[in-house]
Design a protein around this nucleic acid. Structure first.
Length: 317
RNA sequence: GCCUUUGUAGCUCAGUCGGUAGAGCAAUGGAUUGAAAAUCCAUGUGUCGUUGGUUCGAUUCCGACCGAAGGCA
């Protein structure tokens, strides 16, 4: 094995929702001749722009963006697909002598990509899953968990029986590949990352400041036409992954005349706050991240300058 | 003004036939390898409205007062 292969420089900007990732990424791209690869599990969908806080049309036309706006809302997606597509974009950007910038809040996508997780090669197989879900419904979560114990005792130490989706996936992986999840996890980390990273994390030193921004942004989304966007989405086919997006599902009750608008909006704010909390839990443990606490700077320019300095210090540009 | 109901965790409410209390939601922490903006796990001290009385002991019984909702005038 040779380490001669040259690493691709990659700027990574992470952080909870509403922390200002999009703007910072665009400005960095403009300054350093970069292009942006999004790492967001919902911005991949068309027609879901306001609610997922996609970059504006101006932002997207001033800097090339990838992994945004390319899937119909009824199409399923997965980490494995994300990693293989995003990797190609990064390689392509680099081959054109531009600086790739990975930006987003979906921790699983980002870590799978930058840590070079290799997923088992297989097609997704819903008949197996459906059958397992049926077993769980009839005989209970513990029954399925005991099934998993038979084929992968180690993974059971990391999983809770109630985390049905993962228990089922672990069984499915074994049925489709003949190797259990523990085996795949171990073998997925064999090849080292091909990127030279500089990670920047945006957050607030005071959690309430972040929550204020989130709450405020929901009102802005409504002013920008969130309700119409959601209404259109409901009238078309929208399912699977896209259906989980915060900012749309909460409005259903309003359109069906069962809930007040203000109550639905409060649900969106709450859902977003809880999401931000989970994002922080995910990113906090990554010691490679250079954190920028936006509320400790007096204006945006200082944040931008500080971010640029960080990139220079890390020899990324 | 009178009658009835009501005042318990940030919110909605249980409960204690008198021995200082518990659920859901929220909040906080954590997990995260093909649905990840999803999914899952862990964490419950609050003058039981205020104030007197009865009692060994009251949030629980009795009285007064304060607040809320409804009804009658």
């Amino acid at each position: 094995m040779s380490n001669e292969k040259k690493l691709i420089p990659l700027v990574v900007i992470v952080g909870p929702t509403a922390s200002g990732k999009t703007k910072l990424a665009v400005d960095i791209a403009k300054k350093f001749n970069g292009e942006i690869v999004s790492a967001d599990s919902m911005q991949i969908y068309k027609y879901m722009s306001i609610g997922t806080a996609k970059p504006t049309i101006e932002e997207m036309s001033s800097v090339p963006h990838y992994m945004i706006d390319f899937l119909e809302p009824n199409e399923k997606f997965s980490v494995a697909k994300y990693v293989s597509m995003a990797k190609q974009h990064i390689a392509d950007i680099h081959s054109r002598n531009k600086l790739p910038i990975l930006v987003g809040g979906t921790g699983l996508y980002i870590n799978s990509l930058i840590d070079n997780i290799e997923f088992a090669q297989m097609q997704e197989n819903t008949p197996i899953r459906d059958e397992l879900y049926k077993i769980a419904e009839e005989k209970g979560n513990d029954y399925l968990f005991d099934m998993l114990k038979e084929i992968d005792e180690d993974i059971c130490k990391e999983l809770h029986p109630n985390n049905l989706g993962r228990v089922i996936r672990a069984i499915e992986v074994y049925k489709l590949t003949g190797k259990n999840m523990s085996w795949h996890k171990e073998h997925s980390k064999m090849t080292p990352s091909e990127y030279k990273l500089c990670m920047i994390g945006l957050t607030a030193s005071d959690r309430q400041k972040l929550y204020d921004r989130i709450n405020n942004r929901v009102s802005i989304m409504v002013e920008n036409g969130l309700l119409d966007e959601a209404k259109n989405l409901f009238s078309s086919v929208y399912s699977g992954t896209a259906k989980q997006a915060i900012g749309y599902k909460e409005l259903k009750g309003y359109f069906e005349n069962e809930e007040k608008l203000e109550d639905c909006l409060e649900k969106i704010r709450m859902g977003s706050r809880r999401y931000a909390k989970r994002q922080l839990t995910w990113f906090r443990k990554d010691e490679r991240i250079n954190w920028i606490q936006f509320d400790l700077f007096s204006n945006y320019k200082e944040i931008f300058d500080f971010a640029c300095e960080t990139l220079v210090k890390n020899n990324i540009i």
